[in-house]
């Protein structure tokens, strides 16, 4: 059980009265615009929810875990997510039955 784009579109259809095509397109465009911003090395700040940041990592030494051979891990750019205060508070008190 996980929330997917399809369910998000359903809610836009039910609650906002967008037609099904508009709702589906809205969800697609939403994630697509965030992705495009990140691909252009532009941070995304969604107040209340959180920030998607970019971090450039330098090359570092690594190892092939199977053979033990040393191989450098190349320089890379990664996306990180920092939840906003509001989201943190919302989620903090989830009374999960089994900690992961």
């Amino acid at each position: 059980m996980a929330l997917t784009k399809a369910e998000m579109a359903d809610r836009l259809y039910e609650e906002l009265g967008l037609n099904k095509r508009e709702a589906k397109e809205m969800v697609e465009i939403f994630f697509e615009e965030i992705r495009e911003s990140l691909v252009h090395n532009e941070q995304v700040k969604l107040s209340g929810f959180g920030n998607f940041d970019l971090r450039d990592k330098r090359q570092r030494p690594g190892r092939n875990p199977k053979t033990g051979e040393e191989i450098p891990i190349s320089a890379r750019r990664v996306v990180t997510f920092r939840p906003g205060q509001k989201l943190k508070v919302t989620v903090e008190n989830y009374a999960g039955t089994e900690p992961e």
Partner: peptide
């Protein structure tokens, strides 16, 4: 629409549900 989507996502997490967005 954006408010609704972000609220929906926050609500899912608050209920301990994962969010899976293919490709994202």
């Amino acid at each position: 629409a954006i408010k609704t989507m972000l609220d929906h996502m926050a609500q899912a997490l608050a209920e301990g549900e994962r969010i899976e967005i293919r490709g994202f």
